[in-house]
Design a protein around this nucleic acid. Structure first.
Lengths: 110, 110
DNA sequence: TGGCATACTCAGACAATCTAGGCATCGAAG
DNA sequence: CTTCGATGCCTAGATTGTCTGAGTATGCCA
């Protein structure tokens, strides 16, 4: 908050990653690009944030990964949403909606 | 996130405190109650979060405080939004709106 | 050949919140 | 009258998540 650079709030990154992967298997670097692009450049995830988050998320079983070569001939680690991950995404989206609603209520108070 | 207890996201607390105080001078304990009440019990700020936050916010000049006795006869420290604090609230609300918008964009992607 | 975008990883710093205590007062219930 | 919950303030420490900044490596293009 308080800066006008695209900043994340703690706790939203997992949801964004899961959402990005819900649109299809992707490698780490691609996740960053997809998030940036989908948010109209408003959100920018740093590599130093993403990879630890991916590791954390994989440990929890929400995504699975495999090394592969993509069309450009380069190697990359591809991440895929698991069934648990999809459920988790729904949970996090619901939490997010609740939070947004709660804050909206407070904001409209006079 | 991920728990269904009322949880805060880092970065939102300052905004909530400032918003609560924008409705009128109030003491610490009252801020907690006001936030809980306005959010329909969805948001619950812990004392251990609030008081350090108030201290931080006062250092930044966004609120001023004074000890006083309220109608019940008890002493309490009353906090009041400063002019800078009011500006800060606007800034934070704008940031929040941007974030909500950005995440909404990502969420609606198919 | 150099530089840029791509791609992964790790170490360390930092900030904000939470847990879990401490202290004190007041009113109501037993 | 004493105990207990609600009110009210404060602090220490742990935890967590994100960031900065660094390193490594590949492929492409000028």
């Amino acid at each position: 908050m308080a800066k006008n650079k695209a900043e994340l709030l703690q706790g939203t990154l997992d949801m964004l990653i899961l959402k990005a992967l819900s649109l299809g298997e992707l490698h780490g670097y691609g996740i960053i690009q997809r998030i940036r692009q989908l948010s109209d450049e408003m959100l920018n995830v740093e590599q130093g944030s993403l990879y630890p988050a991916l590791y954390r998320i994989e440990q929890k079983g929400w995504v699975s990964s495999r090394w592969d070569v993509h069309e450009t001939g380069r190697e990359a680690k591809f991440y895929k949403l698991t069934r648990t991950g999809r459920k988790q995404l729904e949970t996090e989206e619901a939490s997010w909606d609740r939070l947004v609603l709660a804050i909206a209520k407070i904001r409209q108070a006079t």
